[in-house]
Amino acid sequence: MVHQYKLNGYDIVLDTCSGSVHLVDDVAYDAIALYPEKPREEIVAELLQKYTGRPDVTAADLEQCLDDIAALKAAGKLWSPDVYEEMAFDFKNRSNVVKALCLHVAHTCNLNCSYCFAAQGRYQGERALMSLEVGKRAMEFLIEHSGTRRNLEVDFFGGEPLMNWQMVKDLVAYCRSREKETGKNFRFTLTTNGMLIDDDVIDFCNREMSNVVLSLDGRREVHDRLRVDYAGRGSYDAIVPKFQKLVKARGDKNYYIRGTYTHANTDFTNDIFHMADLGFTELSMEPVVSKPDDPCALTQEDLPVLLEQYEILAKEMIRRRREGRPFTFYHYMIDLTGGPCIYKRIAGCGSGTEYMAVTPWGDLYPCHQFVGDPKYLLGDIWKGVTNTAAQDEFRHCNAYARPECKDCWAKLYCSGGCAANAYHATGSISGVYEYGCELFKKRMECAIMLKVAENQDLAAQGVEVPLELGGACTACADGEGCAE
């Protein structure tokens, strides 16, 4: 399957099943579009007519262009066949390995953000903190069910996890003590609203957390509209200096500033630029997940505005990179040559199978966004997964699970999309959240365009980027190395 688009002056052709990205000129762009539909002589005649007056477009030149297209097709870099569908339905027979847990260490929060799916951190239940005993049992559950997997991931989540901070520290120490005897490598992540960050939190996080996710919605007036305490006071002034201090002390370890945009700030790129201007360089901004009647909810009328915003963001990122003050955007950090293998692309995030959420009292759910929904209570950390019917539903939820996605060029990038978003939008985890699809596809187009722009900038400096990790030069399109 081939996807063609024009963005920011670049004509781009993506071959979905090989992951090949081609930068073409307008003539080749048209030739590729016509290639599957018409015989060569018709394509040549049509393009000669279209480009009348262009001295570079001759019959011989067009024949050469069509030869190049044929060579790329033969090399599996254009219209490469989709040979992965059968693999997708073999997933039910794969092992029941668990490799990651989202630990809800606090079902309570010191902020009262109106758009939060966790509803004051309580997930429609009672306030609760996870005990160290439950935390330790959750870690043993993870170790027991991880099979031969070495890398295990634990997200400290809530609510606000810093409201159970001593337990977090004690549990990390426990896991470190178990690493040597089990041969496992724990990677910890913390997601926080920042209100309780102090020097102890900064020191510990920068020593032990592989990643920290810091919640900031951007401009003060945007952030303080929704991210308020129980007295209705905004939290921007309290958290920004703390985030700046944490990030400054963090060196080159991973973090990102994570914002949410809503109907009230569809000009969200201004919030991203504000984050960058505050000195943060690893940024993320996500569409709100809410009921359609919520005043925060994004509307159909918002969609074209949002799509344009993603393009504005990509162009500004190019400008700032060229000026020597780059920042990254979570959804634009695509790795075209070393991205995930086909199994990962089909399976996606692994929610409900290799990744689960644990409540303060040890119940298991497919992910943090299903916590509190009795239909998706999978079991607990003592007995394991007992609701195998619900787990099977997730096991079958992959890039090939939906007939609507069969002809979508982005399916091996979105892996079928977020099950929680599909569930909340359609009532089924196998539904299609079309609004999210449109945003995702635009983000992918922008991400690929950014890589093309980067490639062109490097080429202008005489630097050639490897086409494929460990691969041979493919300048001649047949994939074979030349003698030089």
Binding site: G19, S20, C65, L467, E468
Partner: peptide, 10 residues
Amino acid sequence: ERIKTIATDL
């Protein structure tokens, strides 16, 4: 040259 392959084996 009208086609430049920027990147590519699943």
